[in-house]
Design a protein around this nucleic acid. Structure first.
Lengths: 353, 353
DNA sequence: TTGCCAATCCGAAACGCTTCGGGCAAGCCT
DNA sequence: AGGCTTGCCCGAAGCGTTTCGGATTGGCAA
């Protein structure tokens, strides 16, 4: 068996109490004692017994993630990337990362509850937040730290890591506006996702700034999938009234669908239609070979480490300001935007596929 | 806070000891008392405090999986399926499932060590075993229970869940032999994987039983990928000497590659070449739309629950015999096998793509 | 009657840690 | 000099469970 506090106390001549306090860096232990204790601990190859610590203190050193049930979850390659990213960062910080994959009939909130009082997890990473997310309310009511990937409101009072998605929407729209586009379609994600609505607001704001009234029929909500991208494009392009001359894709999968639909319609990018996309650089070989597309870019992969750090910060009671991070995105020009062709400036008859 | 044993003891008028024993189904508690205690526990919504239980019993109730670093790992959709399966089963058994995604420069064996004494994990699931797997030796030397997905030898002395892969190889080969094929190619996986070699042995045995000498040039080892399937097929089909009339695919991805290569060569299935496959029903939409293929079938998805149960059994010191399970597979006929055409019965000149 | 056994039960001691409430000097102030 | 603060330390009481070693019955054989 491993050495215990008692062993260290014995070899250093201190009490168990003081050894514990020394190792936990309390402030009523002299620096010299702390050093002596640390040395002894190392020499004895001491490893704290997590169960004991947990039982006594309520803290466990374990953090968790409840994966939403199949279906309500992002694509597998993203899940794997996320799990890898979180796991790596947490283990770097000496925390155990437990993963609970919720089953379809399971109540996700209840799962958190069970994990808290069964295993006394110290905190949770919450992904895929929805407005008024019940998980947030529950965890706060139980006083359990959490961190959000994304956020549910502009200035929330919980730790999070997020992009400025309103700004993403604005920038994407402006990229098209600046080239003269006025009818700008937005193939967006599911409206219950917070970031989707933020981007939608950005789109509307940028349009209004440019004196264009956002047309509801030029925005399509749906899953972040290729088929949604394709179907939404077909719908927008075959509607009566003026067709969009520029399209915004919520992510690369949607962009892929857009490209498919456009080529089916015999429309070229950027000659006939301009396309911009927010690229979160999802892994997946099917996205490797995509036409170069202008837009915003912000690798999702870079959000896991900050997310993990924010959670640990929250557990350690650091001030909220340190725990709220807004990720950067870049704006990239890759030639998928051109000025709208003259024939697209005015209404033309509906296009039929 | 949640109810404790003490609360149950108070309401039932029993001692904490007896309540504990009742709930754990010890045999010196009367059936009537057990029932009473169970009712009280339910009424109070009692949940055992895992930390206390662990502290007292020396176990942590936490099991782990170290995911091999990126690259040495199966495709993402399988990883997710596995994680979901294991997580669900473990949480059903009241265990926490911690996942550590190893990074490329990390020593996987050392990681297990750190997890054991940092988190006092109770046991590990080991996937992707290789012959003489160092993880097995290490965990055994530290006395930590483990369970293998697969195995490194025929009758190992550790818990495992595996198919009879030798039999899989035999059956696949026989499906072709029975229809009259004699030159049977095997597009197999990586030779360092144990199951790959077992299937290879099965192939050889079945051939020998039928009086056919296994030709080394008719077996190709490589990653379980579409491109390996395609390239191996092209190589076998364009070699001088008699070409195979039947092909065995190690899994569906390989089969997909085989189909691609065959159609490139203008060869039809089953008229020109027969194909059989071992289908572990990997998820992934790219495999949904595959030509119907005869062969063996055994859903990988069904292995996670038994795997988890075996690990828990090992932790609870159950006899080894209960912890070694060989999964079933079925043999399915789906019309991709026919008798070899006469022109293939004898040597023909090498085929050039 | 006595002794013994099986069937039930219980008290108390762990398990290793944190933390509350103090104690004891040494140094400062007034 | 007395009283206060400050710095460092300790004993002991938990945390909720398991488990060891008895204790208490009633029944049954000797």
């Amino acid at each position: 068996m491993s050495a215990t506090l008692k062993d260290i106390a014995a070899t250093t001549g201190l009490s168990v109490t003081q050894v514990s306090r020394a190792l936990n860096d309390h402030d009523d232990v002299s620096a010299e004692t702390k050093a002596r204790v640390r040395d002894a601990a190392r020499a004895l190859d001491y490893r704290p017994n997590l169960s004991a610590r947990r039982l006594a203190s309520g803290r466990s050193g374990i953090v968790g993630l409840v994966l939403p049930p199949e279906g309500r979850t992002p694509r597998d390659s993203m899940v794997v990337q996320m799990v890898r990213g979180l796991s790596a960062e947490f283990s770097r910080m000496g925390r155990l990362f437990v993963l609970h994959a919720a089953e379809p009939e399971e109540d996700v909130v209840a799962v958190h509850g069970r994990l808290i009082d069964g295993g006394s997890l110290d905190g949770f990473v919450l992904i895929e937040p929805v407005p008024d997310d019940p998980r947030i309310a529950y965890l706060r009511s139980r006083g359990v730290p959490l961190v959000l990937h994304g956020r549910t409101e502009d200035r929330p009072n919980y730790p999070f890591f997020d992009l400025d998605n309103r700004e993403v929407g604005r920038r994407l729209t402006r990229m098209l506006l600046e080239r003269g586009h006025r009818r700008i379609g937005f193939v967006n994600g599911l409206p219950e996702m917070c970031y989707v609505m933020r981007r939608s607001e950005g789109w509307q704001e940028a349009l209004r700034e440019a004196g264009v009234a956002p047309a509801p029929e030029l925005q399509e909500f749906g899953a972040m999938s290729e088929s949604h991208g394709a179907l939404a494009t077909l719908r927008m392009m075959s509607e009566s009234g003026p067709r969009p001359t520029g399209l915004i894709a919520g992510n690369m999968l949607i962009a892929k669908g857009i490209y498919g639909a456009l080529s089916m319609l015999g429309l070229r990018v950027p000659e006939d239609v301009s396309v911009v996309v927010h690229d979160d650089q999802l892994p997946g070989e099917d996205l490797m070979a995509m036409p170069a597309t202008s837009g915003t870019r912000s690798p999702l992969a870079e959000s896991w480490a900050p997310l993990a750090r924010a959670l640990i910060g929250a557990i350690e009671n650091r001030p909220l300001a340190e725990l709220q991070e807004t990720g950067q995105f870049e704006v990239v020009e890759r030639g998928s935007v051109a000025a709208p062709g003259p024939e697209f400036r005015t209404a033309s008859e509906p296009f039929r596929a």
